[in-house]
Computed example of a mutant assay.
Amino acid sequence: MKLNEEQKELYSLLVPRFGVLLSQEQVSKTLNISKVTLGRMRKQSIGISYIKNTSKGKNGEGSKILYPLQNVVRYLTENNVITY
C-alpha cells in the first residue's frame, strides 16, 4: 500500500531521526505506550505490522522485533478518532 501525501511528508521528517526500522523501544516511546502493551498488541494481532528477525545476534540474543517506519507512519495517520 502506498503512502498518501501527508504520510510521505511525515515519513520524510522522521527518517533522519529514526531510520527506516524502529525498535520496540522507539515505537513504545513514539506512541507513548509501554513495551508490554506493544507486545500485547502483537499477540492480539492488532496495531502496527512488524518484522520478526529470527537470526541470532553477536551476544546470542534471540529474535528481534522491528517496525518499518512506513508502517508506524500509517498507524499514526490512519488510526485517529475524530471527536466533535
Results as ranks from 00 to 15, higher is better:
Q26P: 08
S63E: 15
I46E: 14
Q26L: 07
R42K: 09
Q70M: 04
L3T: 04
Y67W: 00
Q24S: 15
E9F: 06
E25S: 11
I82F: 07
R17I: 08
N53T: 10
I82N: 13
K2N: 12
I46Q: 14
R40K: 14
R40M: 09
G47L: 06
I51F: 06
L31Q: 05
I82V: 15
E61S: 12
I65E: 09
Y50I: 04
L69N: 03
Y67N: 01
K43R: 10
G39Y: 11
S12T: 15
L69S: 05
V36E: 14
R17S: 04
L76T: 07
L31G: 06
V73L: 01
R42F: 00
N32Q: 10
K58F: 00
L22G: 02
N53C: 05
G60R: 10
E6K: 15
S12F: 04
Y84Q: 11
T30Q: 12
V72K: 03
Q70K: 14
R17G: 01
S28D: 10
Y75P: 02
T77Q: 11
K58Q: 09
R74T: 02
S45T: 11
K43L: 00
L13V: 13
R40N: 12
V73F: 00
V36P: 02
K35P: 03
E5V: 15
M41S: 10
V15L: 08
L14F: 06
Y50A: 04
I51D: 02
I82E: 12
